[in-house]
Design a protein around this nucleic acid. Sequence first.
DNA 1: TCAGCTTACGCCGAGCGTAAATATG
DNA 2: CATATTTACGCTCGGCGTAAGCTGA
Lengths: 306, 306
Amino acid sequence: MDPHLLRTFVAVATTGSFSAAASELGYTQSAVSQHIAALEQTLGIAVLNRRPVTPTLAGERLLEHAGAILLRIEAARADVLRVVGEPPGAIVFAATPLAGAARVARALTRLRQDRPGLSVTFAVADRDEVARGVASGTYHLGLIDGVAAPSDPLKLPDVGPLRTSAVAQEKLAVVVPEEHPLAARRRIGLRALVDARWIDAPVVSAALDDLRAAVETDSLRPALTYTGADLLTLLELVAAGHGLAVLPVSAPVPAGVRRIIVDTPRLVHRTELLHGHLAEPAATALIGVLSSTSERSGPSGGSVVE
Amino acid sequence: MDPHLLRTFVAVATTGSFSAAASELGYTQSAVSQHIAALEQTLGIAVLNRRPVTPTLAGERLLEHAGAILLRIEAARADVLRVVGEPPGAIVFAATPLAGAARVARALTRLRQDRPGLSVTFAVADRDEVARGVASGTYHLGLIDGVAAPSDPLKLPDVGPLRTSAVAQEKLAVVVPEEHPLAARRRIGLRALVDARWIDAPVVSAALDDLRAAVETDSLRPALTYTGADLLTLLELVAAGHGLAVLPVSAPVPAGVRRIIVDTPRLVHRTELLHGHLAEPAATALIGVLSSTSERSGPSGGSVVE
DNA sequence: TCAGCTTACGCCGAGCGTAAATATG
DNA sequence: CATATTTACGCTCGGCGTAAGCTGA
């Protein structure tokens, strides 16, 4: 279970070819073959079928672990190296689409005033990607969003210990096309909508899975799934009547769709800041700026915006 | 970041000595020294202070990761080997003290009827220990308990993917000495007790941390902490007036203490069964027996006992 | 037949132990 | 000065590449 062997195994399993994995990793085909042979020998069980190259049952189980293990090792290295704390001239930043580009923009403005020379890179990615990136040191800071019970932390993928701090909590809103029969309503409970047509857009809206867990129902079946990262596209799909979606109330809503506040209790949109154990000075400053963007309320911080 | 080096590092850091770690691992002192040197060289930072041997700041960070990584690797191996599925003549079983020895006893009786030759080992451990043991294959099955919101899964240590299934949910009770002013009450809210004297016994009662999270208060300060695994000792401490504790209502209560049902909503005692991805036939049978011990109710299974 | 994985074999370096050197309290 | 870690050094074995062998579509 040498990490090198695991890395090779992952490469072979994902490419479906020993030779492709070899060139990807900078090995010869022979070395890759030996790696897999060694892995199978120590485990005492075959992990790959040959011709065509596919994972065996055992290999599928191993594949599920291997990525996590390699990531965990990367995260450990990044975490240890953070204590050296070289002050970066640049800061790399990632956020999920709904985590509030507006909030980030405001924070960066404040940060620029304090540290004029600082170069900032800003990336958008989905929640897992942000968490993985922050853990492994690719990003210095991450901003993620999701649906949870008030003051409950968001569920993160198993990526090792990360510091999180709540940045904001706000109510949820259902977005509906303006000709929708309910469009005139100001508030509604989610349970009243379990049989509506839904768009599942886990990247740019509340994932239906999260809503389902909160409503404790097995329905909320998606009529359409949108995996893209563009909020405007989702809103156009809603306007065109393809289904409803749930967003934080602060999300911008263009013409053609209406926003109905969700008054299901114990269900809020939450934004959290993710960072490593010891953040660099610039990051620390940014944490301060982001956190102070909204007033604190309650023991776990963050404000509730309606 | 070779796992061998990590293992050596953990041994040195925990024993506080190169030579002790060497004999523990079956290496020479020299090899251990070389391991640590290699680790520090690849990381580019010292992880141990010498004379006395203590982890540096970076070493403390590494230590936090190293155990988890090694455990994760063990868990992966165990998980892969489970697909071979040799039918064990013996089954090894672990449970937390409050997870219901009575329930286990009943299940084992049923199991014995089906499989007379089966040898069963039963161990008691705390929650983390059970989770770690099941993940790494030491135990085939684990039964854990804890406090959570109804139908919320228990929080597990980061130990890799484990299958869990709810076995039971029941209400909580505060146990108080019989001369306590509130002893005659049948029900009480936790908030009314935030300023009481508490005993924090995370192994054999609801951990105060869990209660605090649910009550959303920073108080509930422990007057006494009991880390032992013996429920009777805890109850004697309660009877002697050292403080209150929260238990599931089904816990046996001897003379000298009274039980007051906690009617704080959204707070239940939950018992879950833990097992690996593919359980062996015997384990599968036991899962069935344990799960059918109580009727199912609600989408996530398990019954609510008052 | 041939593309692609496996096996044979030789070389180099990693890693261990023995033993001498060194540092600390 | 005693105890404990580091360094020197030689040996063995693991792991990689080259090249030949094998096998299924």
